Simulated scan of single mutants.
Amino acid sequence: MTPSTILFDLDGTLLDTAPDMGEAANRVLAEFDLPPLTAEQIYTHTSFGARGLLTAGFGEQAKHQDPIALRARFLYHYGQAICQGTQVYPGIDALLDKLTHLAMRWGIVTNKPEGLTHQLLDHFPRLQAAQVIVGADTYAHAKPHPLPLLEAAKTLDCAPECCFYVGDIENDTRAAHAANMKSIVAGWGYVGDPALIRNWEADHIFTTPTQLSAFLGS
C-alpha cells in the first residue's frame, strides 16, 4: 500500500541531533564531576532523549538522583545551545522534494518537548513546512502510546491505516502498530545493532532516505 500521508520522528530520523544532545548531557554530568559520555554512548542513547543519555552517564548512580531535576538541567543546557552541531541527514531535502512532487501530506511526531522542537526547527525552514508538528507534551501521552500519532493523522484528515510512521527505534514501530499505521525504520538513524531491527517487525526498513524516496515513487 502506498501511503497518502507520512509522519516522521525527528531525532535520528530527520535530524542528527546527537552532537547537541550529547553536549547537554555532558554538561549535566560535569556538574556532578562525572566523566563525559563517549561518542558511542551518545549515538546509542540520543533517541531515548534525556533519560537515555543521563542513565548511561550516571550508571549505578542514576538511582540515587532525582530524575525530574536531572531532566530539567538537561533541558536547560540543551535549550541554551540547541543547534550547534545538529544537521539534516543527507537525502532528507530530496525526500521532502519528492513529497512535494507527489502532493503527499507529512508531519513530525517526536518525543522532544514541543517548545524545544519549535526552537530547533527555527533553524531548519524546510522542516518547518511540516503540516503538523507534535511534541512529547502536546497531548496527554507520548510515544510509544499511539495518541500522538492518531492526533497527528486526525489533524491531517488521514485515516491511520493510510499513514506511515518513520522512526529509528523500536518504540517508534510499536507506536505505529498501536495506531494501526504502517511502520518504516529509518535505518540511517540511531538504530543500534542493525541485526536486531528484524525483531521489531516493522513493515519496511530503509538504510537511506534515498531508498525511502524511491519507494514512495514506485
Rank of each mutant, 00 (worst) to 15 (best):
M1E: 11
P3E: 11
S4Q: 14
T5I: 08
F8S: 09
G12L: 06
T13C: 04
D16A: 07
T17H: 04
D20W: 09
M21W: 03
E23N: 13
A25H: 00
E31K: 09
P35F: 07
P35D: 09
P36Q: 12
L37E: 02
T38Y: 02
T38F: 01
T38R: 05
A39Y: 06
E40V: 08
E40D: 14
Q41R: 05
Q41Y: 04
Y43W: 05
T44F: 08
T44Y: 11
T46C: 03
T46E: 03
F48A: 12
F48W: 03
F48L: 11
G49Q: 04
A50L: 08
R51M: 13
G52C: 07
G52M: 07
L54Y: 11
L54E: 08
L54I: 10
A56C: 07
G57F: 05
G57H: 04
F58Y: 12
G59S: 09
E60C: 03
Q61A: 15
K63H: 14
H64S: 14
H64N: 14
Q65I: 02
Q65E: 15
A72K: 14
F74Y: 15
Q80R: 12
A81L: 07
A81G: 12
C83K: 09
Q84R: 08
T86S: 15
Q87N: 09
I92F: 03
D97I: 10
D97N: 09
H101Y: 09
A103T: 13
A103H: 15
A103R: 13
A103N: 15
M104S: 05
I108P: 00
N111G: 03
K112C: 03
P113Y: 09
E114F: 10
H118T: 09
H118I: 05
L121R: 04
L121T: 06
D122L: 12
F124N: 07
F124I: 08
F124H: 10
P125C: 06
L127W: 11
Q128D: 10
A129Y: 00
A129D: 13
Q131M: 13
V132G: 05
A136K: 10
A136N: 02
A136D: 06
Y139P: 00
Y139D: 03
P144F: 08
P148C: 05
L149D: 12
A153W: 02
K154D: 14
K154N: 14
L156T: 04
C158P: 00
C158W: 01
A159D: 13
P160R: 05
E161K: 10
Y165I: 02
G167V: 02
G167W: 06
E170F: 02
E170W: 01
N171P: 00
N171L: 13
T173I: 15
R174Q: 15
A175E: 12
S183A: 15
I184F: 11
G189N: 00
Y190Q: 05
P194G: 09
L196P: 00
R198I: 10
R198M: 04
R198Q: 14
W200F: 12
W200D: 11
A202D: 02
H204E: 12
T207R: 08
P209L: 07
P209H: 07
Q211I: 00
L212P: 01
F215T: 00
L216K: 08
L216W: 12
G217S: 15
G217H: 13
S218K: 06
S218E: 14
S218V: 05
